[in-house]
């Protein structure tokens, strides 16, 4: 499907997220909506991927470390032709190729099965290391959450990536400030994230994660960085684009009913 702008693509992704979750009657709208702009820009030509060859060895990789926002990824993949858009309505149903969390063997275009927080960044490190070993020029991207940053393994991966100078690894941290039990600073603060990642030896870029020009500029900057992995700290709003979901922890993991979905879709008309 063609879109005039990446912003329009992001809006389409958001609409699909709402439709999918309303149909599935479960899932994670808040984080899916906060990461939608990052995913929209990545799947607008930034990621070198081909829907006709989703497993091409030289493709760029994306690991959705915060795997619960799978609906955002599925929507982008469907809209880019990895599978038919109407299949999105199969989300979370028995036997579906669209599992509640990403499954690399079931869904074309999914590079790694994720869902257990803290693990995807390490996997992305492994992919980036493989590229280095093979002298391959594909790049590896990961999307992590701010709540996910409470997992110790994130910091193990942080050490590893810097130690092995994985400058072909670029990570987006979807900093939407909310997790299931509330404000991340009240549950278990991982702040200051910028200083921590710098101290871990990463190149840190801070942007508004809903500003497409800023996301594109950060991706361009990341490609110029040598000898260090890149962390793009994205300031985002959980539930972005749907008024009653914005900044509400309650919308982390509950689906809209038909009435709420209709209202959300009305707000998301382009």
């Amino acid at each position: 499907m063609d879109f005039q702008t990446t912003e329009q693509f992001a809006l389409a992704i958001r609409r699909e997220i709402i439709r999918m979750l309303a149909e599935a009657k479960s899932g994670h709208p808040g984080g899916s909506l906060s990461a939608a702009d990052i995913i929209a820009v990545l799947y607008s030509g930034e990621l070198r991927v081909d829907p006709t060859q989703p497993d091409a060895p030289q493709r760029d990789r994306l690991v959705l470390s915060k795997g619960h926002v799978a609906p955002a990824l599925y929507a982008a993949l469907a809209l880019r032709g990895f599978f038919p858009r109407e299949e999105l309505m199969q989300l979370r149903k028995l036997g579906s190729f669209l599992q509640g969390h990403p499954d690399m063997h079931k869904t074309p275009g999914v590079d790694m099965s994720t869902g257990s927080l803290g693990q995807g960044l390490s996997v992305a490190c492994g992919m980036a290391l493989a590229a280095k070993m093979d002298g391959a020029d594909y790049r590896v991207y990961a999307i992590c959450g701010d709540g996910e940053s409470q997992e110790g393994q994130i910091w193990e991966a942080g050490m590893f990536a810097a130690h092995y100078r994985l400058d072909n690894l670029t990570v987006f941290l979807d900093h939407n400030h909310l997790q299931i039990d509330g404000d991340i600073r009240q549950v278990m603060s991982p702040e200051p994230l910028d200083e921590k990642w710098r101290a871990f030896g990463w190149h840190v870029i801070q942007i508004n994660g809903h500003d497409h020009a800023a996301i594109k500029a950060a991706l361009a900057e990341a490609k110029t960085i040598s000898g260090k992995p890149v962390m793009i700290l994205c300031e985002t709003v959980k539930g972005k684009g749907v008024s009653f979901m914005e900044n509400q922890a309650g919308w982390h993991g509950s689906a809209p009913n038909a009435e709420q979905a209709a209202q959300a879709l009305a707000e998301l008309e382009g």
Binding site: P57, R61, V63, M104, D111, M112, G118, Q119, G120, S122, V123, A124, C125, G126, M127, A128, L129, A130, A131, D134, G152, Q153, E156, A157, M159, F160
Partner: peptide, 16 residues
Amino acid sequence: AEANMVDVAAGLATCG
């Protein structure tokens, strides 16, 4: 850092 090690291996395995 065993947890990271195992998942790095998983990533390596996805690349052959």
